[in-house]
């Protein structure tokens, strides 16, 4: 039996409370104070802090106590090649999304708490304590920014007149087969007057925040490769509840699993056919295929 609408709402409320009362204050007080104490992860630009690990431990303990039968996947405890997302209800958690922001004190770090069931995001809560923006939602129950229901105003969606979330990411090795070159070439295509000629791109440095901004209609779309299930799981649910849609970052990937690592999120506020046309015109600007 899948979780009912009421059960999902109750989990959402639990996550919101946990973020607002416990986690948010920790993230807020420690930002920009740990510059010298980060250790290098994959390379010098992927920064992990002590606080990151502490916060994940608190979240895991609280959620295990309240939902002992649910599985838990967190950024800090994830093991590449071993950790798998099953059909069981599974919390998918990023204790601090936007670690570089967190280290530098740029006010776009947040905590992202998602729940997947049968491999699909069904609850999401993302909290940026610096700007006091808490986005949350659960399947069938709508999406909210703080206490206000997200209602993306009806308006046309076309590639040229859109603002797109794009990030540099941590993978920076140049070469024709690498993802870095493909990303840069795609950005150029999107911006160029001979390509997409989009209104602009924006980078806030946090995948979860980008997802939520698309959900709220502040961005028209967000294209990304290289991030993980915990970066997008919560935002994905919020996005869908606000009428948005998630597909793959590469051409013709209409259906993707949560851990695809390459995503394209599109806002609501327009019809499904308009979204489909937008996705196709966007994909036509993507140079090559991103591979992870």
């Amino acid at each position: 039996m899948p979780l009912s609408k009421q059960e999902l709402k109750e989990i959402e409320t639990t996550l919101v409370k946990l973020l607002r009362e416990e986690i948010g204050p920790i993230v807020k007080t420690h930002t920009g104070t740990n510059f010298s104490s980060y250790d290098d992860k994959a390379n010098e630009v992927d920064l992990v802090t002590v606080v990151d690990k502490q916060v994940e431990a608190i979240i895991k303990k609280e959620l295990n106590a309240k939902y002992p039968n649910f599985k838990f996947i967190g950024e800090e405890s994830y093991v590449v090649g071993e950790t798998k997302i099953t059909a069981d209800p599974t919390f998918i958690v990023d204790p601090i999304d936007g670690t570089t922001n967190f280290i530098h004190g740029y006010p776009y770090s947040c905590t992202s708490l998602g729940l997947a069931e049968n491999g699909k995001p069904v609850v999401g809560a993302v909290y940026n304590p610096h700007l006091d923006q808490l986005f949350h939602g659960s399947k069938g129950n709508g999406a909210y920014l703080n206490e206000k229901k997200i209602d993306v105003k009806k308006r046309p969606l076309t590639l040229q007149k859109s603002v797109v979330g794009l990030e540099g990411g941590a993978e920076r090795t140049e070469g024709p087969d690498g993802n870095f070159d493909k990303k840069m070439a795609t950005y150029k295509n999107l911006l160029s007057d001979k390509g997409g000629y989009v209104h602009g791109f924006r980078s806030v440095g946090s995948a979860a925040m980008n997802m939520c901004y698309v959900a709220a209609g502040m961005l028209d779309s967000y294209w990304e490769g290289g991030c993980w299930a915990w970066d997008v799981c919560a935002g994905w649910c919020i996005l869908e509840e606000a009428g948005g849609r998630m597909v793959g970052g590469n051409k013709d990937e209409w259906q993707i699993p949560v851990d695809r690592r390459c995503y394209f999120a599109i806002r609501g506020g327009c019809g499904e056919e308009e979204q489909t046309a937008y996705v196709k015109s966007f994909w036509s600007q993507v140079e090559g295929r991103l591979e992870y």
Partner: peptide, 13 residues
């Protein structure tokens, strides 16, 4: 951004 260039922590827009 490139690791052989500035290799900055990141850009924001």
């Amino acid at each position: 951004l490139a690791c052989d260039g500035g290799f900055i922590h990141g850009f924001r827009n």
